[in-house]
């Protein structure tokens, strides 16, 4: 007895700058066993085995490397941790919004990484390090939970209207989450300088509290709350 099968329908954004004048949506169908569920990434890999011209990024396939962020039925997410069964058909896949498209589902993330780099996302402490580790209490360390886990997938920043309008000036939720990760680190000594770098009207203050970032973060992080903490710190510093 052969296994009962079903067809899953997709519409995928296609654009190859070498041949296409403009992007288009292409229909795909995948036949899979009726009872089998799978991650969206697995389905896209199977589509690629049928049409090797489809381009997308992927690496860890378990939601920790941040490669396969895309717009899935209108919402940003990681293909590798999204179950097919959770999606309405036809499943519409588009590149992350607001960034230039290189090809198909691959976007140019340059401006996203530049905003990240702008917040100096590294520990600053010019005191000579001790012979062993710098001490940090469990309570101080706990302040980094919900901040350090970011995987730089860009799902948040590319769902943020403020980032769409001002990607060169507004740091965006991902960068600001990391800005706060270092402000909150008891080992970092550059808090004042970090806050001074954020006082202009755009870097932080373009956040309008839309909270799309919180809604889409595949790691369950809360950039809006981190931005709120930065604002409070800026007020406390009298800026």
């Amino acid at each position: 007895m052969s296994e009962a099968m079903r067809t899953v329908k997709f519409k995928i954004y296609r654009f190859n700058p070498e041949v296409d004048i403009k992007p288009s949506m292409k229909d795909y169908e995948l036949t899979i066993p009726d009872k089998q569920d799978m991650m969206l990434l697995e389905a896209i890999l199977r589509i690629k085995a049928l049409d090797d011209s489809l381009a997308f990024r992927r690496s860890c396939r378990e939601g920790v490397c941040g490669s396969d962020g895309m717009n899935i039925n209108g919402r940003n997410g990681l293909a590798c941790v999204t179950l097919l069964s959770s999606l309405k058909q036809p499943i519409e896949l588009r590149p992350l919004p607001g960034l230039p498209v290189i090809r198909d589902l691959v976007v140019d993330m340059k401006v996203f990484f530049e905003q990240y780099a702008k917040v100096k996302p590294y520990l600053i402490n010019n005191d000579p390090p001790p012979a062993k580790e710098r001490l940090q209490s469990p309570a101080e360390r706990k302040k980094l939970d919900g901040l350090y886990e970011c995987i730089l997938c860009a799902c948040c920043s590319t769902s943020c209207p403020s980032f769409w309008w001002n990607p060169e000036k507004f740091i965006g939720p991902a960068g600001l989450l990391q800005a706060y990760r270092f402000i909150a680190d008891s080992r970092d000594t550059a808090k004042v300088e970090r806050l001074e770098g954020l006082t202009d009207p755009f870097s932080v203050f373009r956040c309008r509290g839309v909270m799309n970032c919180v809604e889409v973060c595949p790691k369950g992080l809360n950039p809006t709350r981190a931005i709120g903490h930065i604002r409070s710190e800026l007020l406390a510093e009298g800026n």
């Binding site: 520990l123 580790e133 001490l135 209490s137 980094l144 270092f182």
Partner: peptide
């Protein structure tokens, strides 16, 4: 490993503040 800690790696901590 101490160098990594000095670079900022957010190790979990024991009650005495050590890694």
């Amino acid at each position: 490993v101490y160098e990594l800690e000095h670079m900022g790696l957010p190790f979990s901590r024991l009650d005495n503040g050590r890694i």
